[in-house]
Computed example of a mutant assay.
Amino acid sequence: MPDLTFTYSNRPFSAIITIVIGLALAAVFAWFAIAEDNPEFDLFGGTLTGWQATTLIWLIVALMLVIAGLGLRILIGFRRNVREVSLGPTALRAPKVPLSRRMVTVPYEQITDIARQRIFRDTILVISHTGGEIRIPRLYLPSADAFTQIESELMTRWAAARRT
């Protein structure tokens, strides 16, 4: 059986949206903290005023900046991190989850189940094995044909490994 390798396509849109939303919310809350002389903040039935409200607002600004930073880190990671699904003669090699840098190698005989899972508008191939699960989303592959080819070839190789 020949090796089959499919490189994941990067989907930077979600990282860019995370950066934009994080920075926008940080700017709005920072403006609110600076512009208000005596801010009030209603929280779980109580009201924070003065320095307590200002402190909470600046903590929210810091949290939004951290979220934007994580989005930026993911965006930069796309450039450095090449992820792929590889079907070798004896084992499957793929990232445990789509954004992970850590590749997992699973011999076909250790696979216990292969199933399709539908989440929102994406179809995910869930490969259960003795050490956990690997998820291969259709959206991260170059085409729907690549997803179908991986699924059928994986089923064939898994069936052959169980017969031996």
Rank of each mutant, 00 (worst) to 15 (best):
G50L: 03
D3P: 11
I119D: 14
L56R: 06
I76C: 10
S143Y: 04
L56P: 03
P12K: 00
L23E: 01
A68I: 05
V61W: 02
V85Q: 06
F44Q: 14
F147K: 01
F6P: 04
W51Q: 15
G46I: 14
T90W: 11
Y108C: 05
F44H: 13
T5Q: 12
A24Y: 14
I34A: 05
T112Y: 09
L25E: 02
I127Q: 02
A94W: 01
T5H: 06
T54W: 09
T5R: 13
F32E: 08
P98T: 01
A33M: 08
E40D: 11
P107W: 07
I134A: 01
A62G: 07
R118P: 01
R102C: 09
P137G: 04
I16N: 00
V66C: 04
A15E: 05
L48R: 04
D42Q: 14
R118W: 09
M155V: 14
F78V: 05
P142R: 02
L4R: 15
S128W: 09
T49Y: 08
S14Q: 07
A160E: 13
D145A: 15
M155A: 15
S100V: 07
F6K: 03
M103W: 07
A33W: 11
E84C: 11
V104W: 00
T130G: 11
I21D: 04
T55S: 14
R93A: 10
P2L: 05
W158F: 13
S152N: 13
I19K: 12
V20W: 02
F32V: 10
G22T: 00
R116M: 11
R83D: 02
I19P: 13
V126L: 03
V20P: 00
T123N: 09
R93E: 12
P39S: 09
P142W: 07
E153M: 12
Y8S: 00
A146T: 09
F6C: 07
V61K: 03
G88I: 03
V97Q: 04
E36V: 09
L139N: 11
A94C: 07
T112E: 09
V97G: 00
L65S: 10
A161D: 10
H129T: 05
Y8K: 01
T123C: 07
L154Y: 02
A115R: 15
G46C: 10
P95F: 01
S100K: 07
R101C: 05
T18F: 07
I127C: 02
D42Y: 14
V104A: 06
P95K: 00
R83I: 06
V20Y: 03
A26Y: 09
Q149C: 12
S143I: 07
I76R: 11
R135A: 03
G71M: 04
L87S: 04
A26R: 10
S100R: 06
T7Y: 06
G71R: 02
R101F: 08
S128Q: 14
G77S: 05
G22Q: 02
V106G: 03
T164Y: 10
L139S: 14
M103I: 12
G131I: 01
S9F: 10
N38D: 15
I74M: 13
L99K: 04
D145K: 14
I19F: 09
R163D: 12
V20N: 04
A24F: 15
S86F: 07
L43P: 06
L141H: 00
R121D: 15
L25S: 03
A27F: 07
G131C: 05
I114G: 03
A144F: 11
V28G: 00
S143N: 12
H129S: 05
